[in-house]
């Protein structure tokens, strides 16, 4: 395995989640290490989104344990280290909001209530907008953007808090190919900076070359955990272990971080 020596960032230990009495996750064990780019794959209803909600504390565990950066989830307070990109439905509310306003709320993990935004806060928002290529749309209403652009806004919001660990819940669902490519570009930059990425996806598309490791969920359990497979294998057809790992060697990435890391 790659990154065997990395510090565990996310540890899920026999995680079980029941929703309205029905078990949705059953005894899930996953450990994600610093710098990994993990794709959580699976069909609808396989539990992949529920797993991310359990790992971020949005969904209470029925049993089992979750640790983030070595701290039990219950005691975890370093919210600035986590960037969360929820499914897109939640982007627009009943009142107009500008792209910059939405992205700026990603900075709340580092801001003190009742204090105005500092120069560093505004800088971080601007950088995040530039990384996703929406700096020129900052003053427009979020609801006037296309679905793919709204998704990029949500990624910029997570970026603005300058986190080390990203959870992205289906960022490519319903997004056109050019926007998927823009998303993949932003995630590549993050990954190269040393961030750990946990990506829930139905299909990887342009993200595929970024993925170090695939965790395939089926019916609430981990069905496969290892090097990424081709999509056919994910969906349970033939040739299960044909690991074509053709992208840049990842043995280099821990060393890269020694000099260029945060």
């Amino acid at each position: 395995m790659l990154n065997v020596l990395g510090t565990p960032v996310v540890e899920a230990d026999r995680v079980t989640v029941a929703i309205a009495g029905r078990p949705v996750l059953r005894g899930v064990d996953v450990t994600i290490r610093e710098g990994e780019f993990v794709a959580l794959l699976g069909a609808n209803g396989s539990g992949k989104s529920t797993l991310v909600r359990a790992l971020t504390g949005l969904r209470p565990l029925t049993s089992g344990r979750v640790r983030l950066f070595g701290t039990p989830l219950h005691d975890f307070r370093e919210h600035a280290r986590i960037g969360f990109v929820p499914q897109r439905a939640t982007a627009a509310g009943g009142v107009p909001a500008s792209v910059r306003e939405v992205v700026a709320s990603g900075r709340l993990t580092r801001r003190t209530p009742l204090r105005p935004a500092s120069r560093a806060d505004r800088r971080a928002v601007q950088d995040a907008l530039e990384l996703v290529g929406l700096a020129d749309r900052a003053h427009e209403g979020v609801s006037t953007l296309s679905g793919g652009q709204q998704q990029r806004v949500l990624i910029a919001r997570a970026l603005a808090g300058d986190p080390e660990l990203f959870f992205l819940d289906e960022p490519t669902a319903g997004v056109d190919l050019p926007n998927q490519q823009a998303l993949a570009g932003a995630l590549r930059t993050l990954s190269e900076r040393g961030a750990t990425v946990v990506l829930v996806a139905h299909e990887l598309g342009p993200m595929e070359p970024l993925v170090d490791r695939a965790v395939v969920m089926r019916d609430g359990r981990v069905a496969y955990d290892g090097a990424p497979l081709s999509l056919d294998a994910v969906h349970g057809h033939h040739h299960p272990f044909e690991t074509t790992h053709d992208h840049a060697p990842h043995v280099g990435s821990p060393l890269d971080r020694l000099e260029g890391g945060r």
Binding site: T90, A104, L108, T109, R157, F167
Partner: peptide, 22 residues
């Protein structure tokens, strides 16, 4: 007006706000 950023985050995306520690 003083808590506008927090109130905005909570009103527009409670899931995100909660993960962000609001």
């Amino acid at each position: 007006l003083g808590l506008l950023p927090q109130l905005f985050a909570v009103a527009s995306d409670p899931d995100f706000a909660q993960v962000a520690g609001v």
